[in-house]
């Protein structure tokens, strides 16, 4: 089998896996979307929002969080929270008020530093590539031997 064919097969398999993953994530996840589309059924459902971003403060007892789904309303103390903070929230869906009632919150204060380190790592990887690998004869070669 040629290298191009093998590469195409790998890409196709990854695309199929990606499509399946996206379908699972959008259809099966018990999250805000499912709860809000059928509130009576999901009243009281526990929901977990790991590493979501605060995208709005609506008062001392209410704020909004977003990830792929935008502006999920959370009923809970917003004191100390700022727009852009990363938080993890555990709460219960309340159908009557159409909110997530917060029971646990963790503010990830170090998240901006982690993101900055991630960007630095990305840049280091980009600039380190030519030092560690070279392009020869249309192929990658590891400089220090494979």
């Amino acid at each position: 089998m040629s290298r191009g064919f093998q590469g195409a097969v790998v890409l196709l398999l990854l695309a199929m896996l990606g499509g399946y993953y996206a379908k699972l994530a959008m259809d099966l996840e018990i999250g805000w979307r499912q709860c809000s589309s059928d509130p009576a059924r999901w009243d009281g459902q526990e929901l977990v929002f790991p590493l979501w971003v605060v995208t709005g403060i609506d008062g001392p007892d209410r704020y909004r969080i977003s990830k792929v789904v935008k502006d999920v309303p959370v009923a809970g103390p917003s004191e100390g929270l700022e727009q852009g903070d990363t938080v993890s929230v555990i709460g219960h869906f309340r159908a009557e008020r159409m909110v997530v009632e917060q029971s646990v919150i963790e503010v990830h204060h170090l998240r901006p530093y982690k993101e900055a380190i991630g960007v630095a790592g990305l840049l280091a990887a980009i600039f380190g590539l030519p030092w560690l690998f070279r392009w020869r004869g249309g192929r990658i070669e590891e400089r220090f031997g494979g």
């Binding site: 896996l17 499509g19 993953y21 996206a22």
Partner: peptide, 8 residues
């Protein structure tokens, strides 16, 4: 789906 397809 563009946010999720990279998961695998």
């Amino acid at each position: 789906w563009l946010c999720y397809v990279w998961g695998p």
